[in-house]
């Protein structure tokens, strides 16, 4: 233990992308250390179940590949996110499978100068699932409900929310890039309550990963799912059809909308809440049209 000069672990944690410079031996030593930490329970989990060690070592590496190589995601406007302190990211939702939520979090974690963690508010269905629900909690995500949102915002976290919910992620191919209803504006009141800025996030590219051309409603009902997608390749090609199409993605983080200048009690004033909801929705819709022009072909580029 004395002869070697260990590479500081903080260095490894601060570097989002492991460089090949350390060689396979350092990678192996890191992997062994990770295995040891898991076997002895030597890691920390926050009250929502976020496990930084697990996320960085297990979840992030494959997602990073998907982000960089498969979807070639371009992240714009990251300077609009605060370096510290809370903000609520509100984004459009699409793609049959909610990969857009994950990619948005990866964009911030990898490319924001402070490498911040985005805490995604996700559907209850996800947390009912045995393995995925556990992984989602370890990744720092939690149930989309106002108590959790307010708690995370009060703690100064970046929280992301997808107010379209299943209506957005499960919409038909013909409806692509058309924003669905934004719910009851619960996300707006959470942000107003906490006095944190709302940051509109526009995601282009997720619509094309699983073009949903049909919905087997009876099967969905039998399985307890909000929809059962039929894409050109799924369920036709089985597991192979479950591979997302490699569309080109752009994620733009818009200008923050401050909420701390609103009068007291604005959080449950329907006029304020609906006004802000509409403003956020309109911003995202206009940005989507602009980004679509900029992107050009959905799969090339």
């Amino acid at each position: 233990m004395t002869a070697h000069q260990p590479r500081a672990e903080s260095e490894r944690l601060d570097e989002p992308i492991p460089t090949a410079g350390g060689g396979w031996r350092d990678t192996l030593a890191d992997a062994l250390a990770f295995a040891r930490r898991r076997l002895t329970g030597d890691y920390q989990v926050d009250e929502f179940g976020y496990d930084a060690d697990f996320t960085d070592s297990v979840l992030l590496p494959p997602l990073r590949l998907l982000f960089e190589r498969w979807f070639r995601v371009e992240a714009l406007g990251l300077e609009h996110l605060p370096m510290t302190g809370a903000a609520l990211l509100v984004a459009n939702h699409s793609g049959t499978v909610p990969i857009d939520a994950v990619m948005t979090a990866v964009a911030v974690r990898e490319h924001h100068p402070a490498h911040r963690v985005v805490r995604v508010l996700a559907a209850d269905l996800l947390f009912d699932l045995p393995v995925l629900g556990t992984l989602a909690r370890r990744g720092g995500n939690t149930l989309a409900c106002n108590p959790d949102a307010e708690r995370l915002l009060a703690a100064g976290e970046l929280v992301s929310v997808f107010p379209e919910g299943f209506k957005g992620v499960g919409k038909a191919w013909t409806q692509r890039y058309r924003l669905q209803r934004f719910g009851r504006g619960g996300f707006v009141s959470a942000a107003v309550q906490a006095g944190v800025p709302i940051i509109p996030v526009s995601i282009v590219g997720a619509e094309e990963i699983y073009p949903m051309i049909g919905n087997l409603k009876p099967l969905a009902r039998a399985l307890g799912l909000p929809y059962f997608p039929v894409t050109p390749f799924f369920p036709l090609l089985g597991p192979l059809g479950a591979v997302p199409l490699p569309s080109k993605w752009i994620i733009e983080f818009g200008e923050p909308i401050p909420t701390d200048d609103l009068p007291d009690g604005a959080a449950d004033d329907p006029m304020v809440v609906f006004g802000l909801t509409d403003r956020v929705r309109e911003t995202i819709q206009q940005t989507l049209y602009r980004l679509l022009l900029r992107r050009g072909h959905p799969f090339l580029g």
Binding site: P6, S10, A29, T55, D56, A114
Partner: peptide, 16 residues
């Protein structure tokens, strides 16, 4: 390979 050190740095300051 050099085994990694046991102690983890305090998470203070790191965003995660």
């Amino acid at each position: 390979a050099r085994p990694a050190p046991v102690s983890r740095p305090a998470p203070a300051g790191s965003p995660e």
